[in-house]
């Protein structure tokens, strides 16, 4: 089985600061890491390969520095890695990103299963997985919390819901997006680290993936970020203390006094 895992390099959430002058994210000196959800996607790909056989190729669209997370993926058990990198991809929104990734995955050849993290911690859109599935003409299931069986025809899995989970059987080829509950990602291995250091990680350009330039990067993105700002601090806050009953009573009183309670 051919498994592709899509991963993204994001700023380490523990290390993000806002530039006080411009109110934008200051990325300077901020450590870049694998998007936390993608780490679980990577682990699931490797785990399924180990249990059911096959091959795992990890794909990342990003600047040349994103090679670091692809090396990390190899050190954690991925077989191959591909960087999709070109100045033409810069400024892509999720629509342009799914187009770019789909072109790259098509170049890999027949793929049975694509696994993505539920969402990236920088953009938080959760759109790339489903969008990519549509472009690849695959069935997709989001928020997968467990994959129990994989055959050459179907995958049986659990989809996390607010009030429990759905048991789903989906025909291959398919795309899954996973939540953190799906597994515990492993540490790299010493052999994996040695393999990663000498790994041949090809870099695909827009030309390599046969992309229509008009659909790439900023130009191919209908979403334009007009302004990034931190939310204004809200007005007065009151913290209620006491037993649950006392707090409920105080809260009800506040509601009664305001218009909220009607």
């Amino acid at each position: 089985m051919n498994i592709v895992v899509c991963i993204k390099q994001v700023p380490d959430a523990k290390d993000v600061r806002l530039d006080p002058e411009t109110n934008t994210l200051s990325r300077e000196g901020v450590k870049s890491v694998i998007n936390p959800y993608d780490r679980h996607a990577m682990e699931e790909g490797v785990r399924l390969k180990e249990e059911f056989g096959g091959k795992v190729t990890v794909v990342s669209m990003g600047p040349p520095q994103a090679r670091a997370i692809l090396e990390e993926a190899i050190s954690c058990g991925a077989d191959d890695a591909i960087l999709v990198s070109d100045r033409a991809f810069a400024g892509a929104d999720t629509l342009a990103t799914t187009y770019t990734l789909s072109q790259a995955i098509k170049k890999i050849g027949a793929v049975d299963l694509v696994i993505c993290g539920k969402q990236a911690t920088d953009g938080d859109t959760a759109q790339v997985g489903p969008g990519l599935a549509v472009r690849l003409d695959m069935a997709y299931v989001t928020c997968v919390q467990q994959v129990s069986t994989v055959t050459d025809k179907v995958v049986v899995l659990e989809r996390m819901m607010d009030d429990g989970y759905d048991e789903v059987e989906v025909e291959l080829p398919a795309l899954l997006t996973v939540v953190k509950e799906v597994n515990t990602p492993r540490f790299p291995s010493i052999r994996g680290l040695r393999k990663a250091r000498v790994a041949d990680i090809p870099s695909y350009t827009a030309e390599d993936i046969g992309a229509d330039v008009a659909m790439l990067g900023l130009g191919g993105s209908p979403t334009q970020v007009v302004k990034v700002f931190p939310p204004e601090p809200k007005g007065d806050r009151t913290i209620l203390t006491g037993s649950v009953d006392e707090i409920a009573e105080k809260l009800a009183e506040i509601f009664r006094e305001s218009s909220i309670g009607g």
Binding site: R186, F187, P188, I190, R191
Partner: peptide
């Protein structure tokens, strides 16, 4: 077991017998 998965038990075994 985590140390084993990350090859730390291979560290003290010669290469010809599956170690590092």
């Amino acid at each position: 077991e985590t140390l084993a998965k990350s090859d730390f038990f291979a560290l003290f075994v010669p290469e010809e017998f599956g170690g590092l």
